[in-house]
Design a binder for these strands. Structure first.
Lengths: 227, 227
DNA sequence: ACGCGCTTTGACCGATCGGTTAATACCCTG
DNA sequence: CAGGGTATTAACCGATCGGTCAAAGCGCGT
């Protein structure tokens, strides 16, 4: 027996190939059938491999799932970094960041479901999700610091939560509403473009309202409530 | 053996008492431990009752869950109806509706988790959730018809989705972020009040931006995109 | 006291789960 | 060819799940 060592990423090639095949099978199942369909047996069958190999290479199904989820988070952060990193005014970068976010979500529709599912079930992988959610919140809060007060109802974290909610929940709720309630297939290119326009409009509305609400150009730091 | 008939609500009292006790036990488990902890055995144990009685009175655990969920939906709709039904300008009623929504969510924090969990897992009760989500969407869309265009990115359904996302996801995501990432206990009275203020501010920002975007007082009906 | 119908019980079923293990196949090196 | 580490396999384990069932308890009218 050998130390499973699924973490080190540069092993001998045949070993890594098998391990990767199993990981890919797991991701495919998550994408197509969701979290509850992810069983060691299902993964093994999909990868064309004996069930025991799943444990041999990955130790447990939980580990396997977390690796898939971490790949998603890594890709997500890359996408945001790239979209945000361009030059331009903060407003422009904000809109570009939103576009990058949406591009990523459109391309990885399972991601929203998986995260939201862990969050809403208090699943066994909450700690991992919590860590990444915290990182994302911290990063955007830093970027918005120039626009919003540091505390109170107009602080960056509220906008982060509201915007990401409006993004994520489209991908989780709209498909459930479906064509009959939403009016058309929510995942069609036209519907996605319409949603994108809505979110950009919303961001603009926020920016304008922030300008109107906060007196001078830079942020004051009110702690008290609004309204 | 007798027809289980869990639906009829006015039976003999001893029978209903037992059935209710089981239902309450199920709800308690859902509130305290979540959906995956809802097993026939757990319910029976909690209700102090033989496991077979769960099936005798409710037919299946699925039925039991749906009854609990439907009670939540009924209460939710009552709360919204009452909050919206007051007189006043549409804007005032909108803010009151938001307050009613938030009051309800604060008082029933399990509700958001249960719904979101069904949505994000594609759970076995999606059909029920879909029906109620559709009803809620239809109702608010009707109310907003006077303020928003009938189609496109500023149509009522987009605002419904964005607002409910911003409300619901606070109750599902903020607790996961926790005190360490959110800055203080997100479910404390002060944090809840701050979130409430944020959402009211957001609605106001939307209303002002809608006024600025749409030329005359009443709605035009553009179909095309924005931005 | 009897019987009848509703209620309650514990034992049981088959399926599925994650995970283990001991035996075997494979392959490369000496 | 021999040996040793790696990879792979089938069989097995205990736990849990939803659900069923036949028997037993029980209350009540006759």
């Amino acid at each position: 027996m050998v130390p499973p060592s699924p973490s080190t990423s540069d092993d001998k090639s045949p070993r890594r190939a098998r391990a990767r095949a199993i990981l890919e099978a797991a991701e495919a199942i998550l994408v197509e059938e969701g979290y509850e369909a992810l069983s060691a047996r299902a993964v093994a069958e999909r990868a064309g491999v004996n069930k025991a190999l799943v444990f041999y290479y990955w130790g447990s199904t939980a580990e396997l799932f977390e690796r898939v989820l971490e790949r998603y988070y890594a890709r997500h952060k890359d996408a945001l970094r790239e979209a945000f990193g361009q030059d331009g005014s903060l407003e422009e970068r904000l809109h570009r960041g939103l576009d990058g976010y949406l591009d990523f979500m459109e391309a990885n529709q399972a991601y929203a479901r998986l995260v939201q599912q862990q969050v809403s079930t208090g699943g066994p992988h909450l700690a991992l999700v919590q860590r990444h959610l915290g990182e994302l919140l911290g990063a955007t809060s830093e970027l918005l610091a120039a626009l919003t007060p540091q505390g109170g109802p107009l602080s960056a974290k509220h906008f982060h939560l509201s915007l990401s909610a409006a993004v994520i929940n489209y991908f989780t709720y709209a498909p459930v509403l479906g064509e009959e309630h939403w009016g058309r297939d929510p995942m069609s290119a036209e519907a996605l473009a319409e949603r994108r326009a809505h979110l950009h409009w919303m961001v603009d509305a926020w920016l304008r309202a922030l300008d109107a609400t906060l007196p001078q150009g830079t942020r004051p730091a009110p702690t008290g409530g609004q309204r």
